[in-house]
Simulated scan of single mutants.
Amino acid sequence: MSGDEKTLLPKPPWLRKKLYNNTFNVDRAIEHNGLETICKEAACPNRSECWHAGTATFLILGRICTRKCTFCNVESGTPGFVDPLEPTKVADAVEALKLNYTVITSVNRDDLPDGGAQHFVDVIRAVRERRPDNKIEVLIPDLLGDWEALRKIVDVAPEVLNHNIETIEPFYYYVRPKADYRRSLELFSEVKRMAPSMVTKSGIMVGMGEDPNDVRQAFRDLLEAGVDVLTVGQYLQPTRQHLDVEEYVTPEQFEAYAEYAYSIGFKGVASGVFVRSSYKADELYAQARQKIEMQEELA
């Protein structure tokens, strides 16, 4: 049901976020290099906090997505040409900001033969050439199940390979109509087959009316597929034209989700009202990396 057809849920007192004003350096570096960020395009509630800390998630392959998910604020339609200078531009921004941990994501580019995989590779290589010690997390689309395209990205060894499952399986037909729940799970299985030690990560939103049992089932599905790190956050309606918020999940329920996720074996979990896929990404990576190395030593 659209937001115009019913009264919107009142926001609870815990849904408040401190805003930071000192974001000039990040904003300037992004604008100077003609770049996009998912921070802006997806209306992320953590934008001012992350930018205040000097971090950002770069959005490559343009700002027009070939899919139209009902929760997402990114514009959909027919994308333009891929900018061949974008890898250099991202590397310039990473160097200017002196980042030690960089997150790179993209819109879905189902119009490209490899879904944009080679462009991810080019960006990763450009950033590493400029800042060799910089750790890189990629948040990739499902590449329409093209595992050879996936291999291109895995072979350049980003520290973290992230792909968000976003919601529970029963909701896929209207939340992510062009995506496939099982295909996303298979993506992680393929990553672990290609690179068993690579840190894998996925995220899910809650507050769309899902049953907690279905949420926990999604956790188990992700763990079985090989996911190491899990993020869980509150869905927030970007505009009245997007999917309604059915529930504001309490902080206590988010804590319960985190406890359950850790209890079944995830190596890193962030669960909270404002948690998003890239929130405190460096901390979650370090936590997961340490546990993977400990397991390898014991094997």
Rank of each mutant, 00 (worst) to 15 (best):
M1Y: 10
D4E: 04
K11F: 00
W14N: 05
N21H: 09
T23E: 14
H32N: 14
T37N: 10
E41S: 13
E41A: 14
H52G: 02
A53V: 02
A53R: 09
R63Y: 12
T78S: 08
F81I: 14
P84N: 00
P87E: 01
A91P: 03
A96Q: 13
A96K: 08
T102H: 01
V103M: 00
S106A: 12
S106R: 03
D111P: 04
Q118G: 04
E129W: 05
E129P: 00
R131V: 13
P132C: 08
N134L: 05
L144G: 04
R151H: 07
A157Y: 11
L161V: 14
I165P: 03
I168W: 02
E169W: 00
K178L: 12
K178W: 06
Y181H: 10
E186T: 14
S197T: 11
K201C: 06
G203A: 12
V206K: 14
P212I: 06
P212S: 15
N213S: 13
Q217L: 05
A218P: 00
R220I: 00
V227M: 07
T231V: 10
P238W: 11
P238D: 09
E246N: 11
E247L: 13
T250K: 13
A256T: 10
S263Q: 03
G268C: 07
V273W: 09
F274A: 01
A281H: 00
E283H: 09
L284R: 15
Y285S: 03
Q290D: 10
E296W: 08
A299S: 03
A299I: 06
